[in-house]
Nucleic acid binder design. Structure first.
Lengths: 137, 137
DNA sequence: CGGCATCCACACGGATACTG
DNA sequence: CAGTATCCGTGTGGATGCCG
């Protein structure tokens, strides 16, 4: 077998690309921002430190599982601090680190884009769907 | 039944929040950027119009299904144009629209953050994992 | 109060085969 | 070349119940 199959070549390319993506800094942040709750949590914490229950209330749709999971991930990456106050009942406060706070301008950029183009996007979407419908009809 | 159950209240809150998220412009963009391939495709198209096969090659890890799906979504939102040239074989070129091109500064912001903080993130991650390990051991 | 463990449904996304 | 159609494994994430 002197030559590799197309499938083999593709598989190898994918592995190499995965490795590239795994080490790409931008990718790592994108991966975090990608999940549903990260940006919501960071935004909620922008106003200052907050307790677990406060966050749960402000991000009304989140389940405890996802909120905890998101906070843990952010903590692990050094974007959020977790401060436990021993008491009965326990009190846990979360806050952005300087690194985490630096994420706010990025979110601001996203927000700016959205507000500038949302109307065009909505129009485009409508036009696209209309074209699809007429093709189907 | 004068009062609602906790589960009911939570469910209603979730519905309301979902509705809020559905109409929030930032959220809509975040949703797009969230999926694995959107940003890669936009980045690839930053250099100018490109054919389907070129994109598939540059974004080596992507499957046709995902590439097509991503391009369709971007096209629907008016961020990418799709130009078919009737020939044998067919030729299809994709390009960023002005709206899509406006996404590049946002990606640049992400990139800037990543390059500035990746080291701190990696360190934090290592420290966090070490702490976890010592707790388990 | 602030979790963790478990179960489970569903959507995401990869592999493969086929088409205009 | 540029897709579409299908099958199917896996991860994501919600619901629930228990615990320090």
């Amino acid at each position: 077998m002197p030559t590799k199959s197309a499938a083999q070549r593709r598989a190898e390319a994918r592995v190499a690309y995965d490795a590239y993506l795994a080490t790409c800094p931008s990718r790592q942040l994108l991966e975090r921002m990608g999940d549903k709750w990260t940006t919501l949590v960071v935004n909620a914490l922008a106003d200052g430190p907050q307790r677990y229950a406060e966050l749960a209330r402000r991000i009304a749709g989140v389940s405890q599982k996802m909120l905890t999971q998101t906070l843990r991930a952010l903590e692990r990456d050094g974007m959020v601090t977790r401060m436990v106050t021993a008491a009965v009942p326990v009190r846990v406060d979360y806050a952005l680190t300087p690194v985490g706070r630096d994420l706010l301008p990025v979110l601001a950029a996203v927000k700016a884009w959205s507000e500038r183009h949302i109307e065009a996007v909505l129009d485009a979407r409508e036009a696209y769907d209309a074209a699809q419908a007429s093709r189907a009809g």
